[in-house]
Amino acid sequence: MADTKKLAIIASKGTLDWAYPPFILASAAAAMDMEAVLFFTFYGLPLLKKEIDLKVTPTGNPAMPMKMPFGSKDFQGINWPIPNIISGNVPGFDNMATMLMKETFKKKGVATIEQLREMCQESGVRFIACQMTMDVFGFERKDFIDGVEYGGAAMFLEYAADANMSLFI
């Protein structure tokens, strides 16, 4: 199709919450007959690892609700105000917050990051890893899933120059 729309996304964040938007948008774009490229740089690189182990932290994120994914409906509706001094200092707090968020996603029928990533690849979304940040942070190609392309700013910009939508996430 001559008028195929193109989506270009820079994925720069590697927390469990922010891992979602790039994969959701890219997979949805593919399902809407659009082309999509995800360029992974800086903290977005771990999203390409064979084994994904992402976490979320409520510390310094006052907008993040702290709710329980179990118990009665009223209990689940309570937002627990956790001061940063607790969330940032109690060992294992981030692990607990991550577990709660994963459980909530599961209960609400939200796909896992692994599922969405796979669906992106199945539907032809291209993944490009930033070689420069890989070198800086010590990531190796063997750590990443198959089907990833490797390049830099020029490779992303070449595609983005003709894209209808360019997002930095």
């Binding site: 399902a31 609400k108 939200v110 796909a111 969405l116």
Partner: peptide, 8 residues
């Protein structure tokens, strides 16, 4: 299922 699964 939740967004974007039904579309996919």
């Amino acid at each position: 299922m939740n967004c974007p699964l039904p579309i996919l």
